[in-house]
Measured scan of single mutants.
Amino acid sequence: DEIHIHFNGVTIEFRGLTEEAKKALEEAIKRGASEEELKELARRLIK
């Protein structure tokens, strides 16, 4: 299970995320999180 985020022309790929983690990332994107914020969020979620 993986998710691809297209962000300002950059694709960020995450693997092994739970549904909750995906929802958290989607919410962050909707509120306009920066690419760095998304990566940091993903790091926290994957652990």
Rank of each mutant, 00 (worst) to 15 (best):
H6D: 06
K39R: 13
K22F: 13
A24K: 09
E19W: 14
N8C: 12
F14H: 02
E36Y: 11
G9W: 05
D1W: 14
A28G: 02
A42Q: 02
E37M: 07
I29Q: 04
S34Q: 05
R43S: 05
E35Y: 14
H4R: 10
K30N: 10
R44T: 09
K22Q: 10
I12P: 01
I29K: 04
G9I: 02
G16N: 11
E36P: 05
G32H: 04
E27G: 07
E27Q: 11
E27R: 11
E27F: 15
I46F: 13
A42D: 00
I12L: 06
E35Q: 08
E40C: 06
K39D: 03
E19P: 12
L45K: 00
K30P: 00
K22C: 04
G32I: 02
E27W: 15
L25W: 11
T11R: 13
I29F: 13
L41Y: 04
K22M: 12
H4E: 04
L25I: 10
E37I: 04
E19T: 11
L17S: 01
E19H: 13
K39H: 09
K22W: 12
I29S: 04
E40A: 13
E20Y: 14
K23A: 12
R15I: 10
E40G: 03
K47P: 11
F14K: 01
E20M: 06
V10M: 12
F14D: 01
A33G: 03
G32K: 03
A24R: 09
E13Q: 11
R31M: 11
L41F: 07
E2P: 13
A28S: 04
R43N: 06
R44Q: 09
I5H: 03
K30M: 12
E2D: 10
L41N: 00
E13L: 13
I29N: 02
A33N: 02
E36G: 07
T18E: 05
E26S: 10
H4I: 13
E40H: 05
N8Y: 02
F14G: 03
A21T: 08
R31K: 09
A24Q: 13
R15N: 08
L41A: 01
E20P: 06
L17K: 01
E36K: 08
R15L: 09
E37C: 04
E40F: 12
N8E: 06
F14T: 06
I3C: 05
H6Q: 07
E19F: 14
L17G: 04
L25S: 00
F14C: 05
E20R: 11
N8I: 04
G32Q: 02
T11P: 02
F7E: 02
R31T: 07
A42L: 15
A42W: 15
I46R: 06
R15W: 15
I5F: 13
E35C: 07
A28P: 00
K39P: 00
L25T: 00
E13P: 03
E36V: 07
L25C: 01
R31Q: 09
E40D: 06
T18I: 04
R15K: 12
A33Y: 10
L38P: 00
E26P: 00
I29M: 11
E27S: 11
I3F: 15
R15H: 11
L17N: 01
R44G: 03
A28V: 05
N8G: 10
A28Q: 03
E2F: 15
G9S: 03
K22R: 11
F14R: 00
